[in-house]
C-alpha cells in the first residue's frame, strides 16, 4: 500500500518577524488587499468574478444538469399529466409527503389518471427517490427551488400547482435519458 505517515510541521519557535507582530500585520493586510482589489475589479468589470455574491432577483445562478429542485408533474400537450396514478412514488417517498387519489378513464388508452395529486412541500426533502421510482417519467425534479409561502397551508401543492409543460422540463428529461443509455451498457462486474 503506497503512502506514508508524515509528521506535521509545528511552528515550535516563531521567527523574529512573527514575534514582532507588526510585519505580520503588514503581510496579512497584503493578502486581504490582494483579495479586495481582485474582487473589486471583478465587481466593476463583471468579468472573471471571484466573489460569490449573486444579486438575487435580477441575477440567477444556472444550476448544473443534475440539480434537484422541487418535484413536479410532467404535463403533456393536451394539458393532462403523464402520471398514471400507479402510486410508486407514494411508496418510495421516505417522508410520505405525496398523496394520490386515482381515477379511471374508461375510453382512453391510459385508463388511469390522478384525480388528486398532492405534495406537501413542507415535508419534501428533495431526495429524488420519487423520480427514480416513477415508471412513466411523470414526476421529475424541476429546477424550481423558490417555494416560500405566507401560510403553512399553502405549502400543500395540488395537482394544478404541480403541472409543468414537458418542454420546460426538457433539460432534466434529457439528463435522465442520458443516464438510461449508460445503464444499458453491459456491466463490468457484479
Amino acid at each position: 500500500m503506497p503512502g506514508r505517515v508524515i509528521k506535521v510541521k509545528r511552528a515550535e519557535k516563531l521567527g523574529l518577524l512573527e514575534r514582532l507582530y507588526v510585519p505580520m500585520i503588514a503581510k496579512g493586510l497584503l493578502v486581504t488587499a490582494r483579495h479586495f482589489f481582485r474582487n473589486l475589479r471583478g465587481f466593476i468589470t463583471g468579468k472573471n468574478r471571484t466573489d460569490f455574491v449573486v444579486q438575487f432577483p435580477e441575477e440567477r445562478i444556472d444550476y448544473p444538469d443534475a440539480f434537484r429542485g422541487m418535484p413536479v408533474l410532467v404535463q403533456l400537450e393536451n394539458g393532462e399529466p403523464r402520471c398514471v396514478a400507479c402510486g410508486l412514488c407514494e411508496f418510495a417517498c421516505p417522508t410520505d409527503c405525496i398523496s394520490i387519489v386515482a381515477g379511471e378513464l374508461p375510453d382512453s388508452g391510459i385508463e388511469r389518471y390522478p384525480e388528486a395529486f398532492d405534495i406537501d412541500m413542507s415535508r419534501c426533502m428533495f431526495c429524488g427517490l420519487c423520480e427514480e421510482a416513477c415508471p412513466e417519467e411523470a414526476i421529475v425534479m424541476s429546477r424550481e427551488v423558490e417555494i416560500s409561502t405566507f401560510t403553512r397551508d399553502a405549502m400543500l401543492y395540488r395537482k394544478a400547482d404541480l403541472l409543468v409543460p414537458e418542454n420546460l422540463l426538457k433539460r432534466r428529461l434529457d439528463f435522465l435519458r442520458g443516464e438510461y443509455e449508460r445503464e444499458d451498457a453491459p456491466s463490468q462486474s457484479g
Binding site: V5, I6, R10
Partner: peptide, 11 residues
C-alpha cells in the same frame, strides 16, 4: 488500497 496518500500525524 490503490490510492497513494499520506497520513499526517501530530506530536
Amino acid at each position: 488500497d490503490e490510492i497513494d496518500f499520506d497520513i499526517p500525524i501530530g506530536e
